[in-house]
Protein backbone atom coordinates (compact mmCIF):
# COMPACT_ATOMS: atom_id res chain seq x y z
CA UNK A 1 0.00 0.00 0.00
CA UNK A 2 2.93 2.26 0.57
CA UNK A 3 4.60 1.87 -2.74
CA UNK A 4 4.67 5.11 -4.64
CA UNK A 5 6.07 6.98 -7.55
CA UNK A 6 9.04 8.61 -6.01
CA UNK A 7 10.56 5.49 -4.54
CA UNK A 8 9.62 3.67 -7.71
CA UNK A 9 11.77 6.12 -9.59
CA UNK A 10 14.67 5.60 -7.27
CA UNK A 11 14.56 1.81 -7.24
CA UNK A 12 13.22 0.97 -10.68
CA UNK A 13 14.80 -2.46 -10.92
CA UNK A 14 13.41 -3.59 -7.58
CA UNK A 15 9.89 -2.60 -8.52
CA UNK A 16 9.94 -3.87 -12.08
CA UNK A 17 9.87 -7.57 -11.13
CA UNK A 18 6.87 -7.26 -8.86
CA UNK A 19 5.14 -4.98 -11.36
CA UNK A 20 5.49 -7.63 -14.05
CA UNK A 21 4.00 -10.22 -11.73
CA UNK A 22 1.09 -7.97 -10.80
CA UNK A 23 0.29 -7.29 -14.44
CA UNK A 24 0.42 -11.01 -15.28
CA UNK A 25 -1.92 -11.82 -12.39
CA UNK A 26 -4.27 -9.05 -13.47
CA UNK A 27 -4.39 -10.30 -17.06
CA UNK A 28 -5.22 -13.80 -15.81
CA UNK A 29 -8.02 -12.53 -13.55
CA UNK A 30 -9.50 -10.37 -16.29
CA UNK A 31 -9.33 -13.23 -18.78
CA UNK A 32 -11.04 -15.58 -16.33
CA UNK A 33 -13.77 -13.01 -15.70
CA UNK A 34 -14.52 -12.57 -19.40
CA UNK A 35 -14.55 -16.32 -20.03
CA UNK A 36 -16.86 -16.94 -17.07
CA UNK A 37 -19.10 -14.06 -18.08
CA UNK A 38 -19.57 -15.37 -21.60
CA UNK A 39 -19.89 -19.08 -20.72
CA UNK A 40 -22.12 -18.89 -17.66
CA UNK A 41 -25.57 -20.29 -18.54
CA UNK A 42 -27.50 -20.35 -15.25
CA UNK A 43 -29.67 -17.20 -15.36
CA UNK A 44 -29.52 -16.82 -11.62
CA UNK A 45 -25.74 -17.02 -11.54
CA UNK A 46 -25.43 -14.58 -14.42
CA UNK A 47 -27.60 -12.15 -12.50
CA UNK A 48 -25.57 -12.68 -9.33
CA UNK A 49 -22.30 -12.07 -11.14
CA UNK A 50 -23.77 -8.98 -12.79
CA UNK A 51 -24.78 -7.60 -9.39
CA UNK A 52 -21.30 -8.31 -8.04
CA UNK A 53 -19.56 -6.63 -10.98
CA UNK A 54 -21.78 -3.55 -10.76
CA UNK A 55 -21.42 -3.33 -6.98
CA UNK A 56 -17.67 -3.82 -7.22
CA UNK A 57 -17.42 -1.04 -9.82
CA UNK A 58 -19.39 1.35 -7.62
CA UNK A 59 -17.47 0.45 -4.47
CA UNK A 60 -14.19 0.68 -6.35
CA UNK A 61 -15.12 4.10 -7.71
CA UNK A 62 -16.17 5.32 -4.26
CA UNK A 63 -12.90 4.02 -2.85
CA UNK A 64 -10.96 6.54 -4.97
CA UNK A 65 -12.42 9.38 -2.91
CA UNK A 66 -13.32 7.63 0.34
CA UNK A 67 -10.48 5.16 0.60
CA UNK A 68 -7.50 6.73 -1.13
CA UNK A 69 -8.51 10.30 -0.38
CA UNK A 70 -9.88 9.48 3.07
CA UNK A 71 -12.87 11.71 2.41
CA UNK A 72 -16.06 10.09 3.56
CA UNK A 73 -18.39 11.08 0.74
CA UNK A 74 -21.97 9.94 1.33
CA UNK A 75 -23.57 11.38 -1.75
CA UNK A 76 -22.41 9.15 -4.58
CA UNK A 77 -25.99 8.05 -5.21
CA UNK A 78 -26.35 11.44 -6.88
CA UNK A 79 -23.82 10.48 -9.54
CA UNK A 80 -25.40 7.05 -9.93
CA UNK A 81 -28.78 8.68 -10.53
CA UNK A 82 -27.31 11.30 -12.83
CA UNK A 83 -25.76 8.57 -14.96
CA UNK A 84 -29.01 6.58 -15.10
CA UNK A 85 -31.23 9.57 -15.85
CA UNK A 86 -28.90 11.30 -18.32
CA UNK A 87 -28.60 8.34 -20.68
CA UNK A 88 -32.26 7.39 -20.33
CA UNK A 89 -33.57 10.91 -20.95
CA UNK A 90 -31.22 11.44 -23.90
CA UNK A 91 -32.44 8.16 -25.38
CA UNK A 92 -36.15 8.81 -24.88
CA UNK A 93 -36.17 12.46 -25.88
CA UNK A 94 -33.46 12.56 -28.52
CA UNK A 95 -33.00 8.89 -29.52
CA UNK A 96 -29.37 9.13 -28.62
CA UNK A 97 -27.92 5.67 -28.07
CA UNK A 98 -27.28 4.97 -24.36
CA UNK A 99 -23.69 4.11 -25.25
CA UNK A 100 -23.11 7.78 -25.95
CA UNK A 101 -25.63 8.79 -23.28
CA UNK A 102 -23.48 6.85 -20.83
CA UNK A 103 -20.45 8.96 -21.68
CA UNK A 104 -22.56 12.11 -21.51
CA UNK A 105 -23.77 11.09 -18.06
CA UNK A 106 -20.22 10.41 -16.91
CA UNK A 107 -19.08 13.76 -18.23
CA UNK A 108 -22.01 15.52 -16.58
CA UNK A 109 -21.33 13.76 -13.28
CA UNK A 110 -17.62 14.64 -13.44
CA UNK A 111 -18.50 18.25 -14.15
CA UNK A 112 -20.94 18.42 -11.24
CA UNK A 113 -18.45 16.69 -8.97
CA UNK A 114 -15.87 19.33 -9.86
CA UNK A 115 -18.29 22.15 -9.09
CA UNK A 116 -19.53 20.60 -5.85
CA UNK A 117 -16.02 19.54 -4.92
CA UNK A 118 -14.61 23.02 -5.39
CA UNK A 119 -16.86 24.13 -2.58
CA UNK A 120 -17.06 21.07 -0.33
CA UNK A 121 -13.65 19.42 -0.61
CA UNK A 122 -12.21 22.14 1.57
CA UNK A 123 -14.47 21.00 4.36
CA UNK A 124 -13.29 18.44 6.84
CA UNK A 125 -14.68 15.07 7.92
CA UNK A 126 -18.32 15.22 8.96
CA UNK A 127 -18.92 18.58 7.27
CA UNK A 128 -17.83 17.20 3.95
CA UNK A 129 -19.98 14.08 4.47
CA UNK A 130 -23.04 16.17 5.34
CA UNK A 131 -22.76 18.40 2.29
CA UNK A 132 -22.50 15.40 -0.01
CA UNK A 133 -25.68 13.98 1.57
CA UNK A 134 -27.41 17.32 1.05
CA UNK A 135 -26.29 17.38 -2.58
CA UNK A 136 -27.90 14.00 -3.25
CA UNK A 137 -31.14 15.15 -1.65
CA UNK A 138 -31.06 18.20 -3.86
CA UNK A 139 -30.66 16.09 -6.99
CA UNK A 140 -33.40 13.70 -5.81
CA UNK A 141 -35.85 16.54 -5.17
CA UNK A 142 -35.16 18.07 -8.58
CA UNK A 143 -35.66 14.72 -10.31
CA UNK A 144 -38.83 14.03 -8.30
CA UNK A 145 -40.40 17.34 -9.26
CA UNK A 146 -39.29 17.80 -12.85
CA UNK A 147 -42.09 15.61 -14.04
CA UNK A 148 -41.99 16.41 -17.75
CA UNK A 149 -38.35 15.38 -18.04
CA UNK A 150 -37.86 12.70 -15.41
CA UNK A 151 -41.32 11.22 -14.94
CA UNK A 152 -41.32 12.41 -11.34
CA UNK A 153 -41.83 9.74 -8.69
CA UNK A 154 -43.09 7.28 -11.31
CA UNK A 155 -39.72 7.33 -12.96
CA UNK A 156 -38.86 6.24 -16.50
CA UNK A 157 -39.32 2.95 -18.32
CA UNK A 158 -36.90 1.69 -20.89
CA UNK A 159 -38.64 -0.48 -23.51
CA UNK A 160 -36.91 -3.79 -24.00
CA UNK A 161 -36.16 -3.90 -27.70
CA UNK A 162 -32.95 -5.87 -28.09
CA UNK A 163 -30.52 -3.98 -30.28
CA UNK A 164 -26.85 -3.89 -29.33
CA UNK A 165 -26.51 -0.43 -30.85
CA UNK A 166 -29.03 0.81 -28.29
CA UNK A 167 -27.37 -0.97 -25.35
CA UNK A 168 -30.18 -3.51 -25.20
CA UNK A 169 -29.47 -7.23 -25.43
CA UNK A 170 -31.53 -10.37 -25.76
CA UNK A 171 -29.34 -12.29 -23.30
CA UNK A 172 -28.10 -11.41 -19.82
CA UNK A 173 -24.56 -12.50 -20.59
CA UNK A 174 -24.06 -9.45 -22.81
CA UNK A 175 -25.02 -7.13 -19.96
CA UNK A 176 -22.66 -9.08 -17.75
CA UNK A 177 -19.82 -8.56 -20.22
CA UNK A 178 -20.42 -4.81 -20.10
CA UNK A 179 -20.41 -4.98 -16.28
CA UNK A 180 -17.13 -6.89 -16.30
CA UNK A 181 -15.66 -4.26 -18.62
CA UNK A 182 -16.74 -1.49 -16.26
CA UNK A 183 -15.21 -3.28 -13.27
CA UNK A 184 -11.98 -3.91 -15.17
CA UNK A 185 -11.87 -0.25 -16.13
CA UNK A 186 -12.47 0.93 -12.54
CA UNK A 187 -9.95 -1.40 -10.94
CA UNK A 188 -7.28 -0.90 -13.60
CA UNK A 189 -7.61 2.84 -13.10
CA UNK A 190 -7.36 2.45 -9.34
CA UNK A 191 -4.33 0.18 -9.64
CA UNK A 192 -2.56 2.62 -11.94
CA UNK A 193 -3.57 5.54 -9.75
CA UNK A 194 -2.20 3.82 -6.64
CA UNK A 195 1.21 3.57 -8.31
CA UNK A 196 1.35 7.07 -9.68
CA UNK A 197 1.46 10.66 -8.54
CA UNK A 198 -2.25 11.10 -7.89
CA UNK A 199 -2.48 8.06 -5.62
CA UNK A 200 0.61 9.12 -3.73
CA UNK A 201 -0.79 12.61 -3.27
CA UNK A 202 -4.18 11.36 -2.09
CA UNK A 203 -2.35 9.10 0.33
CA UNK A 204 -0.36 12.02 1.72
CA UNK A 205 -3.48 14.18 1.95
CA UNK A 206 -5.36 11.47 3.80
CA UNK A 207 -2.55 10.98 6.27
CA UNK A 208 -2.09 14.65 6.99
CA UNK A 209 -3.61 17.27 4.74
CA UNK A 210 -1.98 20.23 6.48
CA UNK A 211 1.46 18.68 6.39
CA UNK A 212 0.96 17.88 2.71
CA UNK A 213 -0.01 21.47 2.00
CA UNK A 214 2.97 22.73 3.98
CA UNK A 215 5.33 20.95 1.58
CA UNK A 216 3.56 22.50 -1.38
CA UNK A 217 1.05 19.84 -2.39
CA UNK A 218 -1.90 21.41 -4.18
CA UNK A 219 -4.52 19.67 -2.09
CA UNK A 220 -7.68 20.90 -3.75
CA UNK A 221 -6.55 20.06 -7.25
CA UNK A 222 -5.63 16.47 -6.41
CA UNK A 223 -8.91 15.97 -4.61
CA UNK A 224 -10.98 17.51 -7.39
CA UNK A 225 -9.42 15.22 -9.96
CA UNK A 226 -10.10 12.15 -7.82
CA UNK A 227 -13.65 13.27 -7.11
CA UNK A 228 -14.37 13.79 -10.81
CA UNK A 229 -12.94 10.38 -11.79
CA UNK A 230 -14.91 8.68 -9.03
CA UNK A 231 -18.17 10.42 -10.00
CA UNK A 232 -17.73 9.56 -13.68
CA UNK A 233 -17.29 5.85 -12.95
CA UNK A 234 -20.33 5.80 -10.68
CA UNK A 235 -22.37 7.49 -13.43
CA UNK A 236 -21.31 4.80 -15.92
CA UNK A 237 -22.62 2.28 -13.40
CA UNK A 238 -25.89 4.22 -13.28
CA UNK A 239 -26.47 3.82 -17.00
CA UNK A 240 -25.58 0.15 -16.84
CA UNK A 241 -28.09 -0.34 -14.03
CA UNK A 242 -30.80 1.51 -15.98
CA UNK A 243 -30.27 -0.53 -19.14
CA UNK A 244 -30.26 -3.78 -17.17
CA UNK A 245 -33.26 -3.16 -14.92
CA UNK A 246 -35.28 -1.35 -17.64
CA UNK A 247 -36.77 1.13 -15.20
CA UNK A 248 -35.47 3.86 -12.95
CA UNK A 249 -37.10 6.09 -10.37
CA UNK A 250 -35.81 8.40 -7.63
CA UNK A 251 -35.94 5.65 -4.99
CA UNK A 252 -34.11 3.02 -7.02
CA UNK A 253 -31.23 5.21 -8.22
CA UNK A 254 -31.05 8.24 -5.94
CA UNK A 255 -31.60 6.95 -2.42
CA UNK A 256 -29.21 7.52 0.46
CA UNK A 257 -29.00 3.75 0.84
CA UNK A 258 -26.99 3.50 -2.40
CA UNK A 259 -24.40 5.98 -1.16
CA UNK A 260 -24.09 4.08 2.11
CA UNK A 261 -23.74 0.74 0.33
CA UNK A 262 -20.80 1.99 -1.72
CA UNK A 263 -19.03 3.22 1.39
CA UNK A 264 -19.79 0.06 3.37
CA UNK A 265 -18.62 -2.35 0.70
CA UNK A 266 -15.43 -0.38 0.31
CA UNK A 267 -14.81 -0.30 4.07
CA UNK A 268 -15.67 -3.94 4.63
CA UNK A 269 -13.36 -4.98 1.81
CA UNK A 270 -10.47 -2.72 2.71
CA UNK A 271 -10.39 1.08 2.43
CA UNK A 272 -7.72 2.58 0.26
CA UNK A 273 -6.60 -0.75 -1.18
CA UNK A 274 -6.96 -1.60 -4.84
CA UNK A 275 -8.97 -4.83 -4.69
CA UNK A 276 -10.54 -4.42 -1.23
CA UNK A 277 -13.82 -2.95 -2.55
CA UNK A 278 -14.21 -5.91 -4.92
CA UNK A 279 -13.99 -8.29 -1.96
CA UNK A 280 -16.50 -6.15 -0.10
CA UNK A 281 -18.87 -6.27 -3.06
CA UNK A 282 -18.57 -10.05 -3.37
CA UNK A 283 -19.29 -10.44 0.35
CA UNK A 284 -22.21 -8.02 0.29
CA UNK A 285 -23.94 -9.28 -2.85
CA UNK A 286 -23.54 -13.01 -2.22
CA UNK A 287 -24.54 -12.80 1.43
CA UNK A 288 -27.63 -10.71 0.69
CA UNK A 289 -28.59 -13.01 -2.17
CA UNK A 290 -28.18 -16.15 -0.03
CA UNK A 291 -30.04 -14.65 2.90
CA UNK A 292 -32.87 -13.51 0.69
CA UNK A 293 -33.06 -17.01 -0.70
CA UNK A 294 -33.17 -18.57 2.75
CA UNK A 295 -35.56 -16.23 4.46
CA UNK A 296 -37.77 -15.23 1.60
CA UNK A 297 -39.80 -12.08 1.24
CA UNK A 298 -41.03 -11.47 4.80
CA UNK A 299 -37.52 -11.06 6.14
CA UNK A 300 -36.30 -9.23 3.08
CA UNK A 301 -34.47 -6.59 5.08
CA UNK A 302 -32.63 -9.13 7.18
CA UNK A 303 -29.59 -9.10 4.93
CA UNK A 304 -29.20 -5.39 5.54
CA UNK A 305 -29.29 -5.98 9.28
CA UNK A 306 -26.67 -8.71 9.11
CA UNK A 307 -24.62 -6.58 6.80
CA UNK A 308 -24.72 -3.80 9.38
CA UNK A 309 -23.47 -6.20 12.03
CA UNK A 310 -20.66 -7.33 9.73
CA UNK A 311 -19.69 -3.72 9.16
CA UNK A 312 -19.55 -3.02 12.90
CA UNK A 313 -17.40 -6.11 13.44
CA UNK A 314 -14.99 -5.04 10.71
CA UNK A 315 -14.70 -1.55 12.17
CA UNK A 316 -14.07 -2.98 15.63
CA UNK A 317 -11.71 -5.80 14.87
CA UNK A 318 -10.36 -5.45 11.36
CA UNK A 319 -9.88 -1.88 10.24
CA UNK A 320 -8.07 -3.13 7.16
CA UNK A 321 -11.25 -4.88 6.03
CA UNK A 322 -11.39 -8.35 4.51
CA UNK A 323 -8.22 -7.72 2.54
CA UNK A 324 -6.42 -6.62 5.70
CA UNK A 325 -7.59 -9.81 7.42
CA UNK A 326 -6.32 -11.93 4.57
CA UNK A 327 -2.95 -10.20 4.66
CA UNK A 328 -2.68 -10.77 8.41
CA UNK A 329 -3.48 -14.44 8.06
CA UNK A 330 -0.90 -14.78 5.31
CA UNK A 331 1.72 -13.03 7.46
CA UNK A 332 1.04 -15.36 10.38
CA UNK A 333 1.23 -18.43 8.21
CA UNK A 334 4.47 -17.20 6.67
CA UNK A 335 5.93 -16.59 10.10
CA UNK A 336 4.86 -19.96 11.38
CA UNK A 337 6.05 -22.00 8.44
CA UNK A 338 8.91 -19.73 7.50
CA UNK A 339 8.26 -19.77 3.79
CA UNK A 340 6.47 -17.92 1.05
CA UNK A 341 6.96 -14.33 0.09
CA UNK A 342 5.82 -11.42 2.13
CA UNK A 343 4.89 -9.01 -0.61
CA UNK A 344 1.23 -8.15 -0.74
Amino acid sequence: MNTNTISTRIQPSLQAASLGRTVTLWVIIVGALYITASRLTDEHLVDLMFQIMLAASLAGAWNIVGGFGGQIALGHAAFFGIGAYTSTILFQHYHLTPWIGMLAGALFAALLATLIGAVTLRLRGPFFAMTTVAFTELVRIIVKNWDSLTGGTRGLWIPWEPNPWNFSFSDRNSYLLVAVTLAVLVFSTTAIMAKTKLGFLLNALREDADAARSVGVKATRARLISFAISAAFVALGGTLYAQYSLSIDPTSVLSFDISIQMALMSAVGGLGTVIGPALGAIAAVTSSSLLRGWFGGELGALHLLLYGVLFILVMLYARGGLLGMAINVKKRLTRRFGQGQSDV
Binding site: N2, N4, N203, A204, E207, D208, D210, A211
Partner: peptide, 8 residues
Amino acid sequence: RRVFPFMA
Protein backbone atom coordinates in the same frame (compact mmCIF):
# COMPACT_ATOMS: atom_id res chain seq x y z
CA ARG B 1 5.71 17.37 13.74
CA ARG B 2 3.06 16.15 11.30
CA VAL B 3 5.02 13.40 9.62
CA PHE B 4 3.09 11.09 7.28
CA PRO B 5 2.67 8.14 9.64
CA PHE B 6 2.04 5.36 7.13
CA MET B 7 4.79 6.39 4.81
CA ALA B 8 8.40 5.38 5.13
